[in-house]
Every structure is written in C-alpha cells, then in structure tokens.
C-alpha cells in the first residue's frame, strides 16, 4: 500500500499503563483502569471502513498490552480488513497472552527514549530499558515487522547515531524521531531545558536528512516540517479551498480517545471539533463523519488554513511539528468565528 492510500484510525482504548513516564502526552499511568468496550470500537471501525475507506488501525494508549479486550479489538479489525499497528513500550511482550495477541498484529512501534540511563530516567523505572530490549527480541523471533519511536529531547538528539545503530542491529525497519511535545504530563513534569529550541531543530533536521540519505535497510522519519517545503506542498497538511468536498480532503487520521470521543487529525484536538462519540448510540445508517464534514468542515478547513498561513510566514519558527501546532491552534480559536 502506498502511504498516500493510508487513512488511519488511532484508537486509545485505555490510559492504563505499567509506567508513568514524565513526558507522557496522554498522561497515562497504572492508576487509570477504565477501558473502551471493544465491541463498540469495532462497530465504529466497521462504519469508518465501509463509508470512508479507513484502512489502518493504530492502537496506542496507555499501554495496549494492558488493555483487557485488545485481542477482540484486533481480531475484529483484522476481519474488517484493517492493517493493525500497535504502539507499545515493549515491556509486556514476553508473555503467553502477548504471544497470542501478536497473531492479530501487522506491525509494532516500540518507544525508545535514548540510552539505558536516559530511557529509565524519563520512564521513572530501573527496568524499562532492559525489558524493552527483551520485547524487541520477541518481535524479532516472531518475525514481526517493527519500528522504534524516539522522543527527541535536548539530552537525546546527540544519541541519534546510537539509535540508528540500535535500530539497525535490532532489525527495526523504521526509526521515527518525534520532538518532545508540551502536552499531557510533559507540561508539568518535564524540565523546560529538555525541550528542543529552533537551533536544535535545525541540527536535528540536517542530521536526520543526512542519515536518511545514507543509511540502508532503515527508514528514518523525522516528525518536523520545514516551512519552505510546506509553501510548495500545502496539500501535505490539507490546506486548500474553504469548503472541503470529502473527508480525505481535510484529514486522513481520525482519533478515538479513551472516553470514546471521535476527533480529527491528532490526539488532544479541541472538543470544539468533536465529530462524534462511539457510544452515541446513533444508527450506523447515519453518517456522523459526513455530517461533521458538512457542518464543521469549513471551520476545520479555516483552522487548517490559518495554521498554515501562520506557520509558513513565522519568522523564527522555520521547523515545526505540524500536528502539535494544529492541536495548539485548535484550542486557540473560537471555531464559530471562523465560518
């Protein structure tokens, strides 16, 4: 499948996690016990697949391997023809239950925050790194395609060469570099000095580009866009005509949160743009996403266009994470004023 053909449903079925990382954007923790009912999620996935062509399920959380109905969710999605991805801290993969779960998964993304010391410090755990490595060996042994996701901080960007080496040695197909976001627990528990400034982002951008162009057998993805690139490619972020004609014209990613809310584009999006809730009990003969597009599509497009204009003209912010910026902007404007 070409990447242009992906339309992704990100499901956060629970915020329950065996860790309580300082930088967790969803503020997950062992204390969070609630979880969505897999039957409701699968019914919604069926609607999204049949009516709007969504074809990739990405389950994160929380730690998906703690979600008690994970197998049912993945099995249901698989039957609907979804490509199933799971984002995990990798620590719970060595168990009988996980072994069974892996049968329903097509690829896994495992979080790595740097070397052992840095990883364990951010994750507030003395065993997180070693157990994550154990998890990678399970993935390798089962032949499961996997990638590593790294949260870039001021302390970690210099470790990128080591992460490339780790990813290659472990047999990962992807190394995703994601700058630390000021979201969730990171806003209160991460020291300001860990966030990358613009000069750091330029360094990372140059380094990641050279790595991408010289490394073999590993895809390197940096979650940053340069404003000059965006000027020539507004379609990349769906900036365009005021009234979008189809859902795919405004977003290719939809979020189902731990409370069952359905939101566009990215986790943390303002509830002003709430599309639906999976427990709404509406008959699936209606089309809540289509309805959202008709009623709120122009407001969402206006938000995208405004964020686009702001970012391509920003004087001191040539590099940025688009998702983070649009989430921030979604909270900053009164949508009614935009239409």
């Amino acid at each position: 499948m070409e990447s242009a053909d992906f339309s992704i449903v990100h499901v956060h079925p629970t915020l329950s996690c065996n860790l309580r990382c300082r930088h967790c954007y969803s503020s997950s923790s062992p204390g969070e016990k609630a979880g969505l009912r897999s039957g409701e999620v699968v019914a919604y996935l069926q609607y999204l697949r049949e009516v709007h062509g969504f074809n990739v399920l990405s389950v994160s959380g929380g730690e998906p391997f703690l979600y008690t109905e994970l197998n049912e969710l993945l099995e249901g999605a698989r039957k609907l023809g979804y490509h199933n991805q799971v984002v995990s801290n990798g620590m719970l993969l060595k168990s009988r239950r996980s072994e069974k779960t892996l049968n329903y998964i097509d690829s896994v993304a495992v979080s790595v925050d740097g070397d052992r010391e840095l990883h364990n410090a951010l994750r507030d755990s003395t065993t997180a790194y070693d157990r994550m490595l154990e998890g990678l060996s399970v993935l390798r042994e089962t032949g499961m395609p996997f990638g590593l996701i790294h949260t870039l901080t001021k302390k970690s960007w210099r470790l990128i060469p080591r992460l490339v080496e780790l990813a290659t040695a472990q047999g990962a197909g992807l190394l995703q570099l994601h700058p630390l976001e000021a979201a969730g627990r990171a806003t209160t528990e991460v020291n300001d000095t860990l966030f990358l400034d613009q000069a750091d982002l330029h360094r990372v951008f140059i380094l990641a580009t050279i790595i991408r162009d010289t490394v073999t057998d590993l895809k390197v993805q940096l979650d940053l866009v340069h404003q000059d690139y965006l000027v020539d490619h507004p379609e990349m972020v769906h900036a365009g005509e005021p009234v979008p004609a189809a859902v795919r014209d405004v977003f290719r990613e939809i979020i189902i949160t731990e409370t069952g809310d359905v939101l566009p584009i990215s986790y943390g999006f303002s509830p002003d743009y709430l599309i639906d809730t999976i427990h709404s009990g509406r008959s699936r003969t209606t089309d809540p996403v289509g309805e959202f597009l008709r009623e709120r599509g122009p407001a969402l497009r206006a938000l995208i266009n405004r964020t686009y204009d702001r970012m391509v003209t920003a004087k001191d912010e040539a590099l940025f994470n688009w998702s983070e910026r649009i989430v921030r902007e979604s909270h900053g404007f009164a949508p009614a004023a935009l239409v």
């Binding site: 613009q198 000069a199 982002l201 330029h202 360094r203 951008f205 140059i206 580009t209 340069h226 000059d228 690139y229 040539a318 590099l319």
Partner: peptide, 10 residues
C-alpha cells in the same frame, strides 16, 4: 544552521 536546513528542505 537555519540557512543550511533551509537548503536541505529546498
């Protein structure tokens, strides 16, 4: 640094 990353983006 800024100009170098600009060139790379171009």
């Amino acid at each position: 640094l800024k100009e170098s990353s600009k060139l790379i983006a171009q």
